[in-house]
Simulated scan of single mutants.
Amino acid sequence: MRIVKTLFAIIGFLVFLAAANAAPLQKGEHYDLLSPPQPTDVAPGKIEVLEFFSYTCPHCYHLEPSINPWIKKLPKDVGFIHVPFAGGQWAPSAKLFYTLDVMEVEDKLRGDVFASIHGDKSLNASNDTAIQAWAAKKGLDAKKFSDIYKSFAIQAKVQRALQLAASHKIEGVPTIVVDGRYVVLKNTIQSYDDLLALTDQIIDMARANKK
């Protein structure tokens, strides 16, 4: 009898989940609309997903274990882009992101950056000198890293990140924006997995609206 009750409980929970997933998304509850919509930076026909984040943000740090496997499973018609928050004290960490990206090691060292800031606290990501010392300890060519980090190209990328944050009306991180239109809201979520599940639903909505 206990087994039967357990099975009914599981079935009921699954039915509840299916109903929740089938419920229509509501503007102001699940997402906000950007006005005006912003141009995207992915191939025509693709759906852009931007994650505005900062290495120094503890919420971004806790989101990281969930978002990495989620990104790998995104459909082929979705283009995902990390955008570092670059204002004020966050500018050095944005420069770090773009420098590692140019050196093609950001994916490899991303977890190390977060762990060094929030775990053992061996990296002060608001300080240019500390960042360059950290990079050398990680085995990166110190001169090459420094030259790229201080370059005009990196400064231009940081300025572009600032412009994107402004045009997408970003007030905090992490914030996910789908297809230049839909800002994913956190009103109804209780976990980072919930946030990504809601983002999946909004991606589906964006895809349907494209058609």
Rank of each mutant, 00 (worst) to 15 (best):
residue 190 Q to M: 09
residue 154 I to E: 05
residue 44 P to E: 14
residue 68 N to T: 09
residue 108 K to G: 00
residue 205 M to F: 00
residue 82 H to V: 02
residue 96 L to A: 04
residue 71 I to L: 05
residue 136 A to I: 07
residue 95 K to M: 12
residue 48 E to S: 09
residue 104 E to A: 13
residue 197 A to K: 14
residue 105 V to G: 14
residue 173 V to P: 03
residue 187 N to L: 15
residue 89 Q to G: 08
residue 40 T to I: 12
residue 197 A to W: 00
residue 108 K to A: 08
residue 3 I to H: 10
residue 66 S to Q: 13
residue 100 L to S: 05
residue 4 V to H: 12
residue 147 D to W: 08
residue 179 D to M: 01
residue 174 P to Q: 11
residue 112 D to T: 04
residue 53 F to S: 01
residue 34 L to Y: 11
residue 25 L to T: 07
residue 34 L to N: 10
residue 46 K to W: 13
residue 111 G to E: 09
residue 39 P to G: 08
residue 112 D to C: 03
residue 184 V to D: 02
residue 188 T to N: 15
residue 138 K to Y: 03
residue 19 A to S: 10
residue 68 N to D: 13
residue 138 K to Q: 11
residue 54 S to G: 12
residue 143 K to D: 15
residue 129 T to E: 15
residue 159 Q to E: 15
residue 191 S to Y: 14
residue 30 H to F: 06
residue 147 D to H: 07
residue 210 K to H: 13
residue 103 M to S: 02
residue 35 S to C: 11
residue 115 A to V: 07
residue 70 W to C: 01
residue 144 K to W: 01
residue 178 V to K: 06
residue 84 P to W: 08
residue 59 H to G: 05
residue 192 Y to T: 08
residue 51 E to G: 02
residue 108 K to Q: 10
residue 65 P to Q: 07
residue 46 K to Y: 10
residue 161 A to P: 00
residue 81 I to C: 02
residue 43 A to C: 12
residue 26 Q to V: 15
residue 172 G to A: 09
residue 20 A to E: 15
residue 71 I to Y: 03
residue 145 F to G: 02
residue 142 A to N: 13
residue 4 V to M: 09
residue 98 Y to D: 01
residue 201 Q to S: 15
residue 194 D to G: 07
residue 174 P to E: 05
residue 181 R to Q: 14
residue 123 L to Q: 02
residue 7 L to A: 15
residue 31 Y to R: 02
residue 125 A to H: 09
residue 92 P to W: 06
residue 189 I to A: 04
residue 196 L to S: 06
residue 175 T to F: 04
residue 122 S to N: 06
residue 184 V to F: 00
residue 148 I to M: 12
residue 170 I to Q: 00
residue 179 D to W: 08
residue 79 G to P: 01
residue 111 G to C: 11
residue 92 P to N: 09
residue 35 S to T: 13
residue 22 A to K: 09
residue 33 L to G: 09
residue 44 P to Y: 14
residue 3 I to P: 00
residue 163 Q to I: 12
residue 57 C to P: 14
residue 146 S to C: 03
residue 27 K to I: 14
residue 208 A to M: 11
residue 209 N to S: 12
residue 143 K to Q: 14
residue 150 K to I: 04
residue 102 V to G: 06
residue 116 S to V: 07
residue 108 K to N: 03
residue 12 G to I: 05
residue 204 D to P: 05
residue 2 R to M: 00
residue 20 A to L: 13
residue 174 P to N: 11
residue 74 L to D: 10
residue 85 F to W: 05
residue 81 I to N: 10
residue 145 F to V: 01
residue 197 A to D: 14
residue 105 V to H: 10
residue 51 E to W: 05
residue 88 G to C: 05
residue 79 G to T: 02
residue 67 I to Y: 02
residue 183 V to G: 03
residue 184 V to W: 02
residue 190 Q to W: 12
residue 138 K to E: 07
residue 39 P to F: 06
residue 152 F to G: 04
residue 171 E to W: 06
residue 44 P to S: 14
residue 25 L to F: 08
residue 45 G to M: 04
residue 110 R to L: 07
residue 92 P to L: 03
residue 63 L to T: 01
residue 154 I to K: 06
residue 200 D to G: 04
residue 103 M to C: 03
residue 72 K to N: 15
residue 165 A to M: 13
residue 171 E to F: 05
residue 40 T to R: 11
residue 149 Y to M: 06
residue 57 C to M: 11
residue 174 P to I: 05
residue 11 I to G: 03
residue 12 G to T: 11
residue 63 L to D: 01
residue 10 I to W: 12
residue 31 Y to K: 04
